[in-house]
Amino acid sequence: MLNIQPVVTLETSMGSFSVRLHADRAPLTAANFLAYVDSGRYDGSSIFRIVNPRNQTPSDPVRIRVIHGGTRPLAASNLPMIPLESTLQTGLSHRHGTLSMGREEPDSAEGDFFVCIGDQPHFDHGGARQPDGQGFAAFGEVCEGMAVVEAIFAAAGPEEYLAPEAEVRILRAYRRA
């Protein structure tokens, strides 16, 4: 039987946290994330961006609170982009601990992901974070280790993007049995 809520553990240089995926509600996005996990593409990557209201670009009218990591957009080793499974389709929403896929344009998600710190409805379909109003693809949530995620968030610097030496390394990502 197919596990419709697989769990993935991410071991980082600041500790481990686990995410439960909603493969039943966001099957394309969950399968994409698992393809990155299973191929080892997250091993050795990092949390490279931590956004809070203090370090966010002043011209951005929508204040967010996230940790953002995985593969870099448009990296040569990334898998093909996937279609957007919006929260309108899935019925999921961006709440505290939600795992979501990064994107620029609709249907442009690759291997970068983010975790919400606090409820973030502006990431949902119709929200103000993306000018196209399509939102982002929520596809899971932190099920263990939220204190580690919050500690990573607390390590934010003066800029959204961390200096290479300050990035939080993802040592290993794997499915749990």
Rank of each mutant, 00 (worst) to 15 (best):
R72M: 10
G91W: 10
R172N: 06
L74V: 15
T98M: 04
D24E: 10
F113R: 00
V8G: 03
Y36I: 10
A26F: 07
V149R: 02
F153N: 00
E144W: 08
R25K: 15
G126W: 02
R175P: 10
Q130L: 15
A147R: 06
F139S: 07
I47P: 05
H125C: 05
R175A: 09
P6W: 01
D124V: 06
A35F: 12
I67R: 03
I47K: 01
P73M: 02
I117F: 00
R95Y: 05
G140Y: 04
F139Y: 13
A151Y: 02
G91E: 05
T90W: 05
V8P: 01
L2V: 15
T98C: 12
G70H: 04
H68D: 13
E159V: 14
V19W: 03
G15Q: 08
L34H: 04
S77M: 09
A31T: 15
M101V: 03
C116L: 07
S86T: 15
F33D: 02
P83N: 03
L171S: 10
S46W: 00
G70W: 02
V66D: 00
N52G: 13
H96P: 03
D124W: 04
L84P: 01
R63Y: 02
E159M: 13
P58W: 01
N32H: 13
Q120L: 04
A31K: 14
P73K: 05
V62H: 05
H122L: 08
G157L: 10
G145C: 09
P6D: 00
Y161L: 12
P106V: 12
A154C: 05
R49Y: 01
A128S: 12
A137Y: 05
E105L: 15
Q89W: 10
P58M: 00
L74E: 15
F114S: 03
G97F: 07
L28F: 05
E150D: 15
F114K: 02
D119S: 10
G40R: 09
A26T: 13
H122D: 14
A109M: 08
G157V: 09
F48S: 10
S13A: 07
I117R: 00
I64C: 08
M101I: 11
H22C: 14
H68R: 11
T9Y: 01
S16D: 13
